[in-house]
Design a protein around this nucleic acid. Structure first.
Lengths: 141, 141
DNA sequence: ATTGACTCTTGACCTAGATCAATAGTCTAG
DNA sequence: CTAGACTATTGATCTAGGTCAAGAGTCAAT
């Protein structure tokens, strides 16, 4: 209904989407953005849809998707009906890898916290549990 | 007491510490390992202490310290008395940044999980909440 | 003495996701 | 019409933490 073809320049797109011009060209090279129309001069000519696609990319990045995964999501999102199942699967995979990363960080966190609690913060480095844990005096065989 | 100077080659050190030869030379360039003695031939000649230092580096890496932070820790650990306080502070900073990273991942996790739960996994992509959230139809001004 | 394994240095290459520089051409307001 | 802003392409650079290759020299066992 309100579909116009305003022919945005790359600079205008960059400003409205909040990304750098170079990033837009980079995404185009990487296949995350379709090749835009060109003016006679060679200038890229965009319509409004590129703005929402750039926002899609940013949101997906914020959710921890890599650009490669995002390229995949974009392809799936264009596949009516068949795409939805695959998109949900990708999201579930992403969730699992986030959970794994959180668990790993929690494990690290626990170890580090115990060391900090046990360290008096002064005195002989030989008695500092942090340094001792890192050095881990191997037992003399 | 049991201090010998076995004059290890870089290959023997690599094998015993479980790292690649190139990694040892890289750490040396980066200032994480002291420059070792050399034989007349130019071969690096190590004593046992480099093994525990390499283990120190690996453990610190496992705790999420960057090589730069580890270089700092190593310098502090050599500073008797004054070092301990600073080491504890570094560990506390590390803990804080781990906590921040966990919190960020939890936030992402929550958002993603809600989308997954709301997605039926089939049907029209226009109704898939994951795709809708990413696309985020901007309200027509 | 030879041979095969080891080591030396220098410098290039890798991932990911951009960012920047150089040089040339284009657009637009006054 | 011109000045200044904008855009084009190609290719280099950056971070972090290494990894690899080439070419030359060394060591140890036979």
């Amino acid at each position: 209904m309100t579909s116009t073809q305003p022919s945005l320049t790359i600079g205008a797109v960059a400003k409205r989407a909040g990304v750098a011009i170079d990033t837009i060209r980079y995404y185009e090279r990487e296949g995350l953005l379709p090749e835009p129309l060109r003016r006679a001069s060679g200038y890229r000519s965009y319509n409004e849809s590129v703005i929402s696609r750039l926002r899609f990319i940013r949101r997906a990045k914020d959710l921890g998707f890599t650009l490669e995964e995002i390229r995949d999501l974009l392809a799936l999102s264009a596949d009516r009906h068949r795409g939805v199942k695959a998109v949900k699967q990708r999201a579930e995979q992403r969730l699992a890898s986030i959970d794994a990363r959180i668990a790993e960080l929690m494990r690290i966190r626990t170890g580090l916290e115990q060391l900090i609690e046990a360290c008096p913060g002064r005195g002989d480095p030989g008695h500092c549990p942090i340094l001792r844990a890192l050095a881990d005096e191997e037992p003399q065989a």
